[in-house]
Design a protein around this nucleic acid. Structure first.
Lengths: 368, 368
DNA sequence: GGCTACTACGTAACCGCTTACGCAGGGCAA
DNA sequence: TTGCCCTGCGTAAGCGGTTACGTAGTAGCC
């Protein structure tokens, strides 16, 4: 841990100037092969690690992209279970960044100190990916004035930053249509997430799309509302049954709620999928392990992470190009709970059927 | 995206020097309340975000810690399933860093470019956590000469960097003892992971510890060997049965192998736990969802991540202190597969019994 | 009144790189 | 021979902060 050596020492010991050392390290041109080898040898000998800050300061490029995400796994225990969403996104981002020679700086916002944290991160990176609602809109706007920002999963209005997301509405429509067309359902209900959740709204909209497309009447509002938790799903389902309403198919806002619904239905001695079909959304790990295995819609989380970083890097390279959006298709995953039987695959079975609202790119929109 | 404003503009507009701006931002002393407010207002007005690189260069402190981990989820599909290990560690690290005002830079090594990547990261951070075998030992040694390093889960010999890990051996001993003492088993076998895996070796050692402690003979080698995959576990178990060996309890090197063993046993029409008890190691998410639910040993992954960052930050603050090690206790998780019945808890049931090889800290060892 | 101590700042020297610019020497065409 | 370009390198001016040091002004005390 002797003080890190500097480019000056390297230069002196190899009998060249710092400019030449820098050029050799950058791999560019402007030096002879002999010089290159001499410098390289010295670097190895000294174990010189160039200072990132110095490099960043001089070149205005840190080689780091930031990823800000909401800290869901609050204080409690249940954290292990919940969102591998975020983890997948992180991995995807890491992959895309690494393959471009950059690294990823991650930070979870705790609602409270969010702004402070985000600013601190913003100063250290070349650009920022902001996942979902991890930051108030006004903060995002503020930050995007000093560093390129890509919003992931939650878009801002016109003039806002670039956007990457999944086609929730299309996915919801697809799984609803599947219930209608493949299983002949005509009496369907939607179990929504929290009132003002954009995700939940999109999914409900897709649900309605499918009903209308099939010539069925679409409800004005979800049949019941939960909070995206298993407990919430159970309560919502119970409430629905208590009201004497017993649809033949339940489309849930997410997997947790669907799992809650399964419990409520079992409690009510109803069989799934024989008496009532159930579907979820997200394809969390537990979805394939519950009984019956949950049919659901998968969002390509890892790829979302990758794409958002790629888009960000593009943006950094071309700060003044028009706004871009990337919407990736979701994937319909049919298991037992919708009524499908399992064509057992090599790994223990799970039939899936790629639904294809093909990827839309770049809704160019001049900044105004 | 107008060019980021600098401290000079802030200083000029608030009629003070850059030194004062810097002091106000640092929150220290040496300025009047009026000046403070004036500077703060200007900062807000300009939307000034201090440059991380500049700050880092001047203060020799980037406020970033690096985390290097092996990129397991290779190219294929199965990645979703596998190790949320790493994810938990990442989250833990993020948490510890954030609460200390730092951020985490992550990078996965792809075996190939590992060294290059690690050096690039090393230059950008104040210190580095290296998870498991994500880097060859010699690279770790080289890097640790220019930046503080904490090794997570895999320790180096004497004189190596600080270390944080879980008590694998103790955990393995605990679960084996549980099979012996709580369920009266005397005929136990160990299904090992890859030959040269230190993890597997530790766990086998713990298995032997428990046997010896109970006065039972300890085998010289594992009864069968797999590769830490489900398929490997299945084959190892089948091979064992094919040899005519049918122990009453199987202690597996990890959960995946245990799940493979469950399959092989079911194929052989043996009941678990009635005919044969089975245990795993790691407590992956699937462990609680298989049938029967898998008894296993949990490593506190998130906490390992937290502790390694905390230790790293300590080290950064005191570069010359003696080497330190932190070993966290593992936790015995008893479910159905060992023969325990489930005392159903509020969330659907899982009895666990904290085993307590109490945390050892600081095996001081003066650097030689 | 003179001295010390303290507060509230300003000045300017770094921190360790990158890179625009300049310059010497050699090759080559006119 | 002169003029020009190209290669291979050195010089030095930043990049945008932090911070040691200096200084003016004020207060407190003898």
């Amino acid at each position: 841990m002797a003080d890190r050596s500097t480019i000056y020492e390297v230069a002196k010991r190899s009998g060249v100037s710092t400019a030449t050392v820098s050029r050799v390290m950058a791999g560019g041109k402007g030096f002879s092969a002999a010089t290159r080898e001499r410098v390289r040898a010295t670097v190895a000998e000294l174990g010189w690690v160039p200072s990132g800050p110095a490099r960043g300061l001089a070149s205005r490029r840190t080689g780091i992209v930031g990823l800000i995400f909401p800290d869901l796994g609050r204080s409690g225990e249940a954290e292990e279970e919940s969102p591998l969403y975020v983890d997948q996104v992180i991995r995807g981002a890491e992959r895309a960044a690494t393959s471009a020679g950059d690294a990823v700086l991650i930070a979870a916002t705790q609602t409270a100190s969010g702004r402070q944290l985000a600013l601190s991160v913003a100063g250290k990176v070349d650009g920022l990916v902001v996942l979902a609602r991890s930051l108030p809109d006004e903060d995002i706007v503020a930050i995007s004035r000093s560093v390129p920002v890509v919003m992931l999963a939650c878009r801002l209005g016109r003039g806002g930053p670039d956007f990457v997301g999944a086609d929730s509405r299309g996915g919801s429509r697809a799984i609803t249509s599947h219930l209608i067309e493949a299983h002949g359902h005509t009496d369907l209900a939607f179990l929504a997430g929290p009132e003002r959740s954009p995700d939940s709204e999109e999914r409900f909209a897709g649900f309605c799309d499918a009903l209308l497309a099939a010539g069925l009447p679409a409800p004005g509002a979800p049949a019941a509302t939960g909070d995206f938790t298993e407990a919430g799903g159970r309560q919502a389902m119970s409430a629905l049954l208590a009201r004497g309403r017993r649809p033949r198919a339940i489309v849930c806002g997410n997997d947790e709620m669907a799992m809650g619904a399964l419990i409520a239905l079992r409690t009510a001695r109803l069989r799934v999928p024989a008496d009532v079909a159930v579907t979820g959304f997200d394809d969390i790990a537990a979805a394939r392990h519950v009984t019956p295995a949950l049919s659901t819609v998968r969002q390509p989380m890892r790829e979302l992470g990758e794409r958002s970083v790629r888009l960000l890097l593009d943006r950094i390279g071309a700060p003044d190009a028009g706004r871009r959006s990337v919407v990736l298709p979701t994937e319909l995953v049919t298991r037992r709970s919708c009524g499908c039987t399992i064509r057992s695959g090599p790994r223990g079975g799970q039939a899936s059927e790629p639904e294809a609202p093909s990827e839309r790119e770049t809704d160019r929109e001049q900044p105004g």
